[in-house]
Design a protein around this nucleic acid. Structure first.
Ligand SMILES: [Zn+2]
Length: 538
DNA sequence: ATTTTCAAT
């Protein structure tokens, strides 16, 4: 949680234009909670007993045992499906429906939440948002005044939604429920977009909102956590929240307050959320001061000196057949095209890549055969018998690149440029070996495109470090985008005149992966810069 | 109850 690029994130009120994005986010956050809840309710002893009784009663009427067993369960599930969304606010909010329009009313007038990770960029952002407000004003004046009044009323009870905005993409949200009592507020609907989880964004949102509420005199914050949600509970515990009733011992004299937040009535009177409490200490410093792990984050523009070789320089040159018989024999064993299904399955850049238990590597080896003649080798490989595909490729490379170590038969030193497209990014071990290999072959340039990042979810994973290691070794690592998939489809797939068709979310996932990779590699840039400064004696 | 990842059966 140290080297995050949270500095880029601005925490602001949801506005009307964000409503769709926030709804999508909430939907994502809700996914599964309802089913989990149903499963939970179904497996309560009381429910099981009732079901058993119902089944045995039905058994008297019905002939089929299975049917008698299944029907009550089925009915119960249907009943739950129908009643739960209506009786319970989702994700811990007090009402089933959220008034999005009401809660975005005049939201742009409110300043952003403090982001301790951000440097300066915030000021302009708050200013920039004045414009849409003006427009809105015009529009509303055209409409009837009644509308405006009604909205104002609605906004009073609607609550507030705060969103985390990273370069225009809404990647997280948290809401302050419209319900309130003096000195108490309630937060709910905390969702972080699944690509950005485990990066400290949830903490940022909650603590940002806390500090804001603290300024407005709130001394106690309740978090209603959907139940049962282990992650949510652990999360709020880490932020210093305690389950209702646990606070008594720790807070001592605070008890005069004697405030007790009723758990929601929930479904048929059963509480469906757990209530967590956080009490602001009196006289504690305001606002951003008390973020744990606070760090001033310098933004460093990544220098382009390494990326002088541009994308398609290689690809525009026409494809040449290998000259020698030996080469072609090697190639024919390799250049068997991938099937369409295989390519799509293994290269699909979905978030949860279940079942991709192998890794494919499509490569292009470019060699300079003369002052102005180039030749290319194409092929694809997959991992075999426990050997990672990258290492297999390295073994392969000796045959593809004669004179890689030292000089050729003619005495000419050969130069090679390798580009590969891999379905997974390299693991840390392969990264190390690759870096070592490259340190011994200075006439080889490597460019890696990956479709997905391998084990890079944990902040301190060795795979992340491995990628940085590779970058420091001079490898250009990028995430595959549409044009890369397109190129691979044209080059490595038995496409039978079928043109490449992008899957759902290709672009968006690619964008997210690019940003994720940038976040992973960014420390390299700062180190480079630091080295540069050190070299200059600064 | 969150999910996966160069498998292991
Ligand atoms: Zn590996």
């Amino acid at each position: 949680m140290v080297r995050l690029d949270l500095g880029d994130v601005s925490l602001r009120r949801m506005q009307e234009k964000d409503i769709d994005a926030v709804k999508a986010l909430i939907k994502e956050g809700c996914e599964g909670t309802e089913n989990r809840l149903i499963l939970y309710l179904l497996t309560r002893p009381l429910a099981l007993l009732m079901l058993a009784i119902l089944s045995s009663i039905l058994r008297c009427v019905l002939h089929s045992f299975i049917l008698a067993l299944v029907i009550p369960v089925f009915i119960f599930i249907i009943f739950l499906k129908l009643t739960i969304p209506r009786s319970v606010g989702i994700l811990g909010s007090s009402r089933p429906y959220w008034d999005y329009v009401g809660s975005s009313y005049h939201a742009d007038t409110e300043p952003d939440l403090p982001n301790p990770h951000a440097g300066k960029a915030k000021l302009e952002k708050t200013r920039r948002r004045k414009k849409p407000k003006e427009k809105e004003k015009d529009k509303t004046s055209e409409r009837e005044q009644v509308d405006e009044d009604e909205l104002k009323q609605r906004s009073k009870v609607a609550g507030e939604v705060w969103v985390a905005d990273s370069d225009g993409e809404i990647i997280g949200c948290v809401a302050r429920d419209g319900w309130s009592r003096d000195g108490v507020c309630r937060i709910c609907r905390l969702v972080v977009q699944s690509w950005y989880r485990r990066e400290g964004l949830g903490r940022l949102l909650v603590q940002g909102l806390e500090s804001r509420t603290k300024q407005s005199g709130i001394r106690r914050v309740y978090a209603h956590v959907p139940f049962p949600s282990k992650v949510g509970e652990a999360f709020f515990r880490r932020l210093g929240y305690r389950l209702q009733g646990e606070t008594a011992g720790t807070m001592g004299e605070e008890e005069e307050e004697d405030d007790y937040e009723e758990p929601e009535k929930g479904w048929l009177g059963f509480p469906l959320t757990k209530t967590y409490t956080h009490i602001h200490l009196r006289g504690s410093s305001l606002g951003s001061g008390d973020f744990p792990g606070r760090r001033v984050h310098e933004r460093v523009k990544s220098s382009d000196w390494r990326q002088t070789n541009t994308q398609d320089a290689n690809f525009k040159v026409t494809r040449k057949q290998p000259k020698t018989a030996a080469d072609s024999s090697k190639l024919t064993s390799v250049i068997v095209l991938m099937t369409q299904r295989k390519f799509i399955f293994h290269y699909k850049n979905v978030r949860w890549a279940r079942g991709r238990n192998e890794t494919h590597l499509c490569f292009v080896v470019k060699r300079r055969t003369g002052p102005d003649s180039l030749s290319f080798d194409f092929g694809h490989l997959r991992n075999r018998s426990g050997c990672h595909v990258e290492l297999l490729f390295l073994r392969h490379l000796g045959a593809l690149c004669p004179g890689l170590w030292g000089s050729n038969v003619d005495g000419a030193r050969m130069c090679y440029a390798v580009t590969w497209f891999c379905s997974w990014s390299p693991c840390s071990k392969c990264a190390q070996q690759l870096a070592h290999f490259l340190s011994q072959t200075p006439n080889l340039r490597l460019r890696i495109f990956v479709s997905r990042l391998y084990f890079c979810d944990e902040e301190d994973s060795v795979e992340r470090e491995g990628l940085r290691h590779l970058k420091r070794a001079g490898v250009q690592i990028s995430v595959m985008t549409y044009k890369d998939y397109f190129y691979c489809w044209q080059t490595f797939v038995a496409r039978k005149e079928k043109s490449f068709k992008a899957w759902d979310g290709l672009h968006q996932n690619s964008v997210r992966l690019v940003r994720k990779l940038n976040r992973i590699l960014q420390p390299c840039d700062t180190e480079d810069l630091r080295d540069g400064f050190a070299l200059l004696g600064l």
